[in-house]
Design a protein around this nucleic acid. Structure first.
Lengths: 140, 140
DNA sequence: AACATTATGCAACTAAATTGCAAGTATATA
DNA sequence: TATATACTTGCAATTTAGTTGCATAATGTT
């Protein structure tokens, strides 16, 4: 297991307070977060803009990935289970619950191979599944 | 084949000028469009806000669907080949070209069945494939 | 410890989308 | 085919998400 600081170093990021806290917050939560979520948590301690820039640097250094969805609000999630090393990052399966709106990465699922039309070249793929998650299923 | 007006009627939409023109513009283009694309075309004739509201009503009535992507700008595309009737609308495969940024619906492809974790219920799925499209492949 | 590089906070700004409201138009039904 | 009702439109103002510039502060390298 790696410490938060080691993870940052491995991704060529300087060790700063906001980076440590944001990364740990992502690890603790285990779900996709928006800038607004983070601002709610951290606005007393860190500036809005710094949170944006931290997200951007995490993205650029492969610590987070952006999850495409149709709300127009960017959602970010850790790139692998541990958040420690770089796994294959070219396709993702995400599950978004219609009831609680939570977005999870389904690491265990692989996107099946598809036959694209002629001359199309796939570079990466994102599968967003919507429905009801296990917790909401239980409640209902 | 249905006329534009018939299509609107089938989707329980009143016949108005902007609805006819927007729908025809989608049919003519055959690719996903943003509000900005439409504003560029129609700003002399229709108000920005009216374009937004037309897109929303098309969405609500199943004429268009929103394509999730990671730019934060909403993209819309017709729900079926003809734009005429309601096909199964619960899953979509889209292809976004890294070079020309064009997004197409790949109607011919089906999203393969996946085994979700226990108690998860899938209601719909969106697969976004990114890469190089046929036209850009040719140019290069 | 000194330096170059990178990160942070603040203020201002841009872009995308939404809301309220008054005036106008489409359509059902009488 | 007139008319009442419900829906649609345009305009102005507002909200929300995200970006940029710049001065100051912190990091990590030598």
């Amino acid at each position: 297991m790696h410490t938060t600081e080691q993870i940052l170093k491995h991704h060529h990021l300087r060790i700063t307070e906001i980076r440590i806290e944001l990364l740990q917050y992502f690890q603790k939560n285990g779900k996709a977060l928006t800038h607004a979520d983070l601002e709610l948590q951290f606005n007393k301690k860190f500036d809005r803009v710094t949170i944006y820039r931290t997200l951007t640097s995490f993205l650029e250094n492969g610590l987070l990935h952006k999850i495409p969805d149709d709300t127009g609000v960017a959602k970010y999630a850790l790139c692998s289970h541990e958040g420690s090393t770089h796994t294959h990052d070219d396709h993702h399966v995400h599950f978004k619950c219609r009831l609680c709106d939570k977005i999870e990465c389904l690491y265990t699922l692989e996107i099946p191979k598809l036959a694209l039309p002629k001359k199309y070249k796939m570079e990466n793929a994102n599968l967003l599944i919507e429905g009801i998650c296990a917790s909401c299923h239980a409640i209902k």
